[in-house]
């Protein structure tokens, strides 16, 4: 294959990564933005989504589309319930202190990871894709399912954007993010908003995981990479900036795809991680965010 098509393939792969990454990072960004909580267990909610997707779809053998559809609906709901429980039992009691919640979510990371290892096992398992359709390009065939991931991600991002900017729920969330105390004084149930946002963040990660699991197998250690990449995206994109998150996910995903194809995946990660550390050091509000008040 010559350079041009090779590059196209790398960009397509990068776009798929970006699509999944944007959803995961959006979850992290919402939790960070509204609650000021750095959720280190975010990657484990992603992993839990993938593992549950396998468990659910293997309950309906023979019907990959039905199994996948059920996984897409049920897995995020279960993950959301787990997150809600964690929020009520642990984070609320810590009064959302930023440092204490980091330690607590590290604890959750280990607990969830170990439970997945104990009950799911160390194997990597794939979920059959809901459909097998190949788009035949002049140079190579490309999986239709991968393209549908990109489409699904765009739809979900638009839905989130709509909820955040055009509905009452979004208004309440933004008010809480802007000033917790004033929001409370105006009768907004800040406590319930926090619980809802934490669950929503985990559910976004779970949806992303269900989408990726037909092309990347479910494994109990799969949560670390999305966690680090989401951090990178959230930091580069700027806190609470939906547009920034999407742009950063595109930059990171596509450059990761291109560097991985032409150089080495480790080098790609080294470059991305150093770049983000430098962004944090020299431009803490992110490339697209506004300076904090």
């Amino acid at each position: 294959m010559s350079f041009g098509p090779h590059l196209l393939l790398a960009v397509l792969e990068g776009l798929v990564t970006s699509a999944v990454l944007a959803l995961t990072a959006l979850g992290l960004s919402l939790v960070f933005g509204v609650m000021r909580v750095v959720n280190v267990a975010h990657g484990e909610f992603f992993m839990l989504g993938a593992v549950l997707a396998w468990a659910i779809s293997s309950m309906v053998p023979g019907y990959p589309s039905l199994g996948f559809l059920m996984a897409l609906l049920l897995s995020p709901l279960i993950v959301g319930a787990v997150a809600l429980l964690a929020e009520r039992l642990v984070l609320r009691r810590l009064d959302y202190n930023p440092e204490a919640t980091i330690v607590a979510t590290i604890g959750m990371l280990y607990v969830i990871q170990q439970l997945a290892l104990t009950f799911y096992g160390p194997e990597a398992r794939a979920v059959p894709p809901p459909f097998n359709f190949r788009l035949q390009l002049p140079w190579f065939g490309y999986s239709g399912y991968k393209l549908s991931i990109i489409a699904a991600s765009i739809v979900l991002m638009l839905a989130t954007w709509f909820v955040l900017t055009r509905t009452r729920i979004g208004l309440v969330m933004r008010a809480t993010q802007y000033d917790r105390e004033t929001a409370q004084a105006f009768g907004i149930p800040v406590d319930r908003v926090y619980a809802g946002v934490f669950a929503l963040g985990a559910m976004l990660a779970a949806v992303a995981a269900v989408l990726i699991v037909p092309i990347q197998q479910a494994h109990y250690l799969m949560g670390l990479d999305p966690l680090l990449l989401s951090f990178i995206v959230v930091i580069i994109g700027g806190l609470g900036s939906l547009r920034g998150t999407v742009i950063a996910a595109l930059i990171i995903g596509v450059s990761d795809g291109v560097i991985s194809v032409f150089f080495s995946p480790t080098l790609a990660k080294i470059i991305a991680t150093s770049a983000v550390a430098m962004v944090l050091v020299f431009r803490p509000q992110g490339l697209f965010g506004t300076a904090p008040r």
């Binding site: 642990v90 810590l94 990871q113």
Partner: peptide, 13 residues
């Protein structure tokens, strides 16, 4: 790892 995780959560709480 479960013990490490639970201990972290209980300690901080």
């Amino acid at each position: 790892m479960l013990i490490v995780g639970l201990l972290l959560i209980l300690l901080i709480l």
